[in-house]
Write a protein that binds this DNA or RNA. Sequence first.
DNA 1: CGCATCATTGATTTGGCTCAAATACCGTGG
DNA 2: CCACGGTATTTGAGCCAAATCAATGATGCG
Lengths: 251, 251
Amino acid sequence: MTIDTFKGTAASLSLDKLRRSCGYCAMHDVCLPAGLDGGDLERLDSTVRERRPLDRGSALFHQGDSFTALYVVRSGSLKSYVEGSDGDMQILGFHLPGEIMGVGGLTNDHYPSSVEALERSSICELPYPQLQAVSASMPALHHQLIRVISHEIVSEQAHMVMMGKQQAQRRVAIFLRSLADRYGRLSRDPTALTLPMSRGDIANYLGLVIETVSRLFSRMEADGILAVNRKSVRILRRDLLDALCGGETES
Amino acid sequence: MTIDTFKGTAASLSLDKLRRSCGYCAMHDVCLPAGLDGGDLERLDSTVRERRPLDRGSALFHQGDSFTALYVVRSGSLKSYVEGSDGDMQILGFHLPGEIMGVGGLTNDHYPSSVEALERSSICELPYPQLQAVSASMPALHHQLIRVISHEIVSEQAHMVMMGKQQAQRRVAIFLRSLADRYGRLSRDPTALTLPMSRGDIANYLGLVIETVSRLFSRMEADGILAVNRKSVRILRRDLLDALCGGETES
DNA sequence: CGCATCATTGATTTGGCTCAAATACCGTGG
DNA sequence: CCACGGTATTTGAGCCAAATCAATGATGCG
């Protein structure tokens, strides 16, 4: 392997570590380290731990667990949600590679929501004490952390706009567009979506019922906007999709 | 004045300044400086500027303005909202004394929402470059800032739960309870609310129409839960109000 | 005092929910 | 490989909570 030529010794372990490092991660520039340079990147790397992959349906943490770390999706996808005492749940968001999870826990000592894998997913763990220690002497990381947290706020606000008064079809359209754009940023084909979440999850997230989502998928397919097949959705007419989204700005 | 005994000279200016300082501010322990000790507090103070009061209806900043500062309500109240290109607006939140505004701007260089005074209000301005400089050498402030931003996320999530699938009456009940609790934290009477915002603002914020809010106020009055008179709302039966809110946790 | 805005109340409509059923899909075990 | 049971999804019919439409009443301001 060519990598060995400049990082010669102690083969498998260090190679493995390198492969897992932020600098070589495919998410590099859409993730927390975006904008950090070499030295800083290494110091951040030293605080990142990789957890063993989560299987579909298993939890990264639960609402009420004590806050210990922030997490970033490395691969796969997850959902975060809160559960009321009466057992109803509300999905707050879906997390794709490069996206951060657990920021709600920073303000208390407990996570205010749960996060669960939608498919087998790998996760980078950033134990908060270490992250704090490192960022104390690294203004760029510190600022980047604040930016990432603030970005969460803006995304949530976009979601609130959608939940506020938009029609069901527009909600679905905005959801698909947002997903397509996030796929695009990950250099995946933004017209060929593979929805990792169930119809029920989508409906819950959008404040609709499952039947409505299903009907709207069918309708948009009949209108030639989508080709829907189970979990795979192909966007045939992005222009029409955008039209359905109306004048709203997207996340 | 007793204050002069330990901060003797240069009468009016420094007294004025003192009166405006975080240490003497009534919001002290519900605001950004909560938990900071003497020395740190003074250094924070040096970055705080007080803007001249905003009149009802005037804007603190507009969506799209370039980001320069965070703001904290000192007195009065404000609303933040976004406007779609088609002119529709969605209110994202109301801001009472001690609460922070503008955090959405941290992730971009522009504020993603507008903020407007609901009544004559005074505001503390925290120019971000200075705040950044000061917090770089003050881990406690830095952490506090992150906590405050994270708190915004959690509040928004609570709002999303409400917007998700709650009945209209529950939304109104949760809104009133949240306001009452925030009044309480400000040591105001949490049973005697003075709503600084219009019915239209409330309706918009809750994802309802104005008529529905009006009807529900009337209904809750008929049920003996509230006494409503224009902008003043007295909570007569907090227990019944809580019951309407259901098993949901509040912000 | 008169105008303009805000709020309340009533009548009617409707988008999305609920209830109900059929269909497709998936993993499992024979 | 195929049959089977369970789950997820789609589709249909009717209903309901809240929206819309329409006045009327109250408040505050110039």
